[in-house]
Amino acid sequence: MARISQTIDVARAQILVTLKPSLLDSAGRTVAGSLQNLGFTEVSEVRVGKLIEIELAEYSEARVKEMCEKLLANPVIERFEIKEIV
């Protein structure tokens, strides 16, 4: 994936947001059907999530977690994973 900035003196966080496994992923089901139509008959399930990249003055996992809890993910329906990009 292309970097969102070429500068090297900023910190970056990557957040992966996914729908809880217990919930039906309508978009994923559609994509799975399309892949099967293209001949990828080995596909049994697709789940679609979101990848969010953030540039920061400095990386703090606690702060990024707070961002996820306050806006980036909805705990009722989603899970999130945080990664620092180095």
Binding site: S26, N74, V76, I77
Partner: peptide
Amino acid sequence: LCEAGLLPGALLLNEQQ
């Protein structure tokens, strides 16, 4: 209202897309 926490639950993409 759900996102604001005023109501329980959430709304997702319709089942039949």
